[in-house]
């Protein structure tokens, strides 16, 4: 397959995976926690390398889940002990990320990872970073990781769809009917962790937040149904990746930066022009109500 199509495929996979998972973050008002996890998984990757002495995908996913959950649990515990939630996120996030940065500089000679790469990603190199899994031919590692994570996310969201829905809408009611609300929260944070780490190589820790949040935020303004919101979010994620890629080739700029920018532009357009929840339509309705 050509160089260009690999980048488009990997970008789209990141768009779909992040877009779907991100919807639940928006509905649960957890965008900032996702931001935190997207950074602290860096520590997970470094730890995975130190333990396994390899950059193998499976170790990276495990490392990400461990540190991602550590972040979520740490924030939960501090918050429960009376610290404000945003302050808890700020403390846990920066501490774990800082440890990750220190470890990277210590092991810099061995790890094919630097802080810039982790923060910004480099989708341009994705087609050359090939690995061989089982009976499969040699394929780009980012493609294999994102496909695996997409399947895991779809299976988990499919199995626990109604539980994710009710714990997002009304956690008290969910707890009253006996659902393990906190466990479901950690399950979702686990998904966010593996999603982030799989998207890491391509878009990096900062831009992955754009891919997690922007498509869901746009989809939220376009529909009144959760299932449609998930679908739209996935579609917007892919569109942003594809449009972003061509825009980047045309302007000769950073591909991941361009993908995230397109996500922002799509959100801005939806925010203004959404037929029901857009700024203009709301202004128009208000005006009409005044006239009547």
């Amino acid at each position: 397959m050509s160089y260009e199509s690999w980048i488009l495929i990997v970008g789209s996979l990141a768009g779909v995976t992040c877009g779907i998972t991100g919807c639940f973050l928006i509905l649960r008002k957890l965008s900032m926690l996702a931001d935190a996890i997207s950074h602290t998984v860096l520590l997970g990757i470094v730890l995975a390398f130190i333990v396994s002495q390899s950059m193998s995908g499976i170790y990276m996913l495990i490392g990400a889940v461990v540190v991602g959950l550590l972040t979520a649990v740490g924030v939960q515990m501090l918050h429960h002990a009376g610290i404000q939630e945003d302050a808890s996120i700020g403390v846990v996030f920066t501490f774990l990320f800082a440890v990750g940065v220190i470890l990277i500089t210590v092991f810099a000679d061995d790890v094919h990872l630097d802080v810039d790469h982790a923060l910004m990603g480099e989708i341009t190199f994705v087609p050359w970073d090939l690995v061989q899994w089982g009976f499969l031919p040699e394929l780009p590692k980012a493609f294999l990781m994102l496909s695996t994570v997409l399947v895991i996310n779809l299976v988990i969201i499919g199995l626990f769809y109604k539980e994710l829905k009710i714990t997002s809408f009304d956690p008290q009611m969910a707890a009253a009917i006996g659902l393990p609300v906190l466990l479901i929260h950690y399950l979702l944070m686990g998904l966010v962790s593996i999603t982030t780490v799989a998207s890491f190589d391509s878009v990096g820790a900062i831009l992955v937040v754009a891919m997690l949040i922007a498509p869901g935020a746009s989809a939220y303004l376009l529909t009144n149904k959760l299932s449609i919101m998930l679908l739209l979010s996935a579609l917007i994620g892919v569109s942003a990746a594809v449009i972003g890629y061509y825009l980047a080739s045309w302007l000769d700029v950073s591909i991941s930066g361009s993908m995230a920018t397109v996500n922002g532009i799509i959100f801005a357009l939806v925010f203004l022009f959404s037929p029901t929840k857009g700024l203009l339509s709301r202004k128009f309705t208000m005006k009409k109500l005044k006239m009547d």
Binding site: F169, M173, Y220, K225, M229
Partner: peptide
């Protein structure tokens, strides 16, 4: 159980 009406976000995408 009927929680207080104000305890949930009524903008949630559902009917």
């Amino acid at each position: 159980y009927v929680p207080q009406r104000g305890s949930v976000d009524w903008d949630f995408p559902t009917n």
